[in-house]
Computed example of a mutant assay.
Amino acid sequence: MSEIWFYHHESARIEQTLPALLMKVLERGGRALVISPLESRIESLDQHLWTFTDDSFLPHGRADRPRADQQPVLLAREPENINNATMLFCLDGADPGDGGGWDRVLVMFEADDPGALNAARALWSARKKSQTPVSYYKQSSSGRWEKSG
């Protein structure tokens, strides 16, 4: 069973923090799968990851497009690991499934999204009961992630 880290966004948006986390995965030689049940989020991230800074981009693709299995970062609606990712990022209340097969699962949710917040709470509770290792992180006022639980 993979360790699950919960990232609670109280001030920053997921679009602001996700690229840096994905870059760390790639720098360490890993691959990432980013899932959301919302097609609008997948479309938005697909554009954002090419343009989030003026001097860099994140190579990525979509699960519903050709050569998805070759992408270092893959955007999808389901947790099917077709690009052999080491890390799973769950957005918008996405269900990580059994959570197995990943080095780590990150559940990212924003404080102003009640559906994602409730899904994260339910997942936290269920995984704690099943004795899955879980950690909770929230951003400090300086923008750094701090472990809180």
Results as ranks from 00 to 15, higher is better:
residue 70 Q to K: 14
residue 22 L to C: 10
residue 47 Q to S: 08
residue 16 Q to A: 15
residue 41 R to S: 10
residue 18 L to N: 04
residue 13 R to I: 08
residue 17 T to N: 09
residue 14 I to F: 08
residue 35 I to D: 11
residue 52 F to H: 15
residue 15 E to G: 11
residue 17 T to E: 11
residue 88 L to R: 06
residue 70 Q to C: 14
residue 89 F to W: 09
residue 91 L to E: 04
residue 55 D to V: 04
residue 44 S to D: 09
residue 15 E to L: 14
residue 37 P to H: 10
residue 26 L to Y: 00
residue 25 V to Y: 03
residue 45 L to V: 04
residue 47 Q to G: 11
residue 32 A to S: 12
residue 28 R to F: 01
residue 55 D to K: 08
residue 71 Q to E: 15
residue 27 E to T: 02
residue 100 G to Q: 12
residue 77 R to N: 15
residue 80 E to N: 11
residue 95 D to Y: 04
residue 30 G to N: 00
residue 56 S to H: 11
residue 60 H to Q: 08
residue 80 E to M: 05
residue 98 D to P: 10
residue 98 D to S: 14
residue 61 G to I: 03
residue 20 A to L: 12
residue 75 L to S: 13
residue 64 D to V: 06
residue 91 L to H: 02
residue 101 G to S: 07
residue 46 D to T: 08
residue 32 A to C: 08
residue 79 P to H: 06
residue 96 P to A: 11
residue 75 L to N: 07
residue 97 G to T: 11
residue 21 L to I: 05
residue 72 P to W: 04
residue 84 N to C: 13
residue 64 D to I: 00
residue 105 V to K: 02
residue 34 V to P: 10
residue 74 L to K: 01
residue 58 L to E: 02
residue 11 S to I: 15
residue 48 H to A: 06
residue 18 L to D: 07
residue 32 A to Y: 02
residue 90 C to H: 08
residue 45 L to D: 04
residue 31 R to P: 13
residue 40 S to H: 02
residue 97 G to A: 01
residue 103 D to E: 13
residue 59 P to S: 06
residue 12 A to F: 10
residue 78 E to R: 14
residue 9 H to S: 11
residue 87 M to T: 14
residue 11 S to Q: 15
residue 50 W to G: 03
residue 38 L to Y: 00
residue 102 W to Q: 05
residue 32 A to P: 05
residue 52 F to M: 09
residue 91 L to F: 09
residue 46 D to G: 09
residue 105 V to E: 07
residue 47 Q to W: 03
residue 96 P to R: 04
residue 25 V to I: 13
residue 88 L to H: 02
residue 58 L to A: 01
residue 33 L to N: 10
residue 66 P to H: 06
residue 94 A to G: 06
residue 85 A to T: 08
residue 10 E to I: 13
residue 59 P to T: 09
residue 29 G to R: 01
residue 26 L to F: 05
residue 28 R to G: 12
residue 100 G to Y: 05
residue 77 R to H: 14
residue 33 L to M: 13
residue 12 A to Q: 13
residue 11 S to E: 14
residue 81 N to K: 05
residue 45 L to F: 08
residue 73 V to W: 12
residue 38 L to K: 11
residue 91 L to I: 10
residue 92 D to F: 03
residue 104 R to P: 04
residue 31 R to Y: 07
residue 101 G to R: 00
residue 101 G to N: 02
residue 76 A to P: 13
residue 55 D to R: 11
residue 46 D to Q: 12
residue 70 Q to M: 15
residue 104 R to Q: 15
residue 73 V to R: 10
residue 78 E to F: 07
residue 42 I to W: 07
residue 50 W to H: 00
residue 105 V to D: 12
residue 73 V to L: 14
residue 90 C to T: 07
residue 90 C to I: 12
residue 59 P to H: 03
residue 44 S to T: 08
residue 90 C to K: 01
residue 27 E to R: 07
residue 81 N to H: 02
residue 38 L to E: 14
residue 59 P to V: 04
residue 95 D to G: 05
residue 60 H to G: 04
residue 92 D to S: 13
residue 35 I to Y: 08
residue 16 Q to P: 03
residue 13 R to P: 06
residue 87 M to E: 15
residue 49 L to R: 11
residue 15 E to Q: 14
residue 23 M to Y: 00
residue 25 V to R: 03
residue 27 E to G: 02
